[in-house]
């Protein structure tokens, strides 16, 4: 058995970033509509993240989309940009 150092290694590749893979509209606890996005992380796990109305609208604006269907494929980084556009809100 060859030692690990002698095994040819593939060239390092850039880690994929989390990506939105789906979205839907749901009812929120406070009676407003919420945006639920499905995010696929680098390890392949898909998780839901809920956004209240203003943050969801900001995400769509940052992504330049006109329908939640168009959010699929958008990088998760856009969410961070959207949060920054919602004044003084940290959650």
């Amino acid at each position: 058995m060859a030692t690990p150092s002698l095994v040819a290694q593939p060239a390092p590749t850039r880690m994929p970033e989390p990506v939105i893979v789906g979205a839907s509209i749901a009812g929120g606890h406070d009676g407003a509509a919420e945006l639920i996005v499905q995010v696929r992380f680098e390890n392949g796990v898909v998780r839901d993240v809920a956004m209240e109305n203003d943050t969801g609208l900001a995400l769509m604006s940052v992504c330049g989309v006109h329908s939640i269907e168009e959010l699929a494929g958008q990088p998760w980084q856009r969410f961070l940009e959207a949060v920054g556009q919602v004044p003084a809100k940290s959650s």
Binding site: H29, A32, S67
Partner: peptide, 22 residues
């Protein structure tokens, strides 16, 4: 849970319909 909205303020209620959302 219910959702309430009006035409006065933007609501995600319309976000699945691109014509209306726009």
């Amino acid at each position: 849970i219910d959702i309430s909205f009006s035409f006065e303020l933007p609501s995600l209620f319309f976000a699945a319909n691109p014509t209306w959302y726009t």
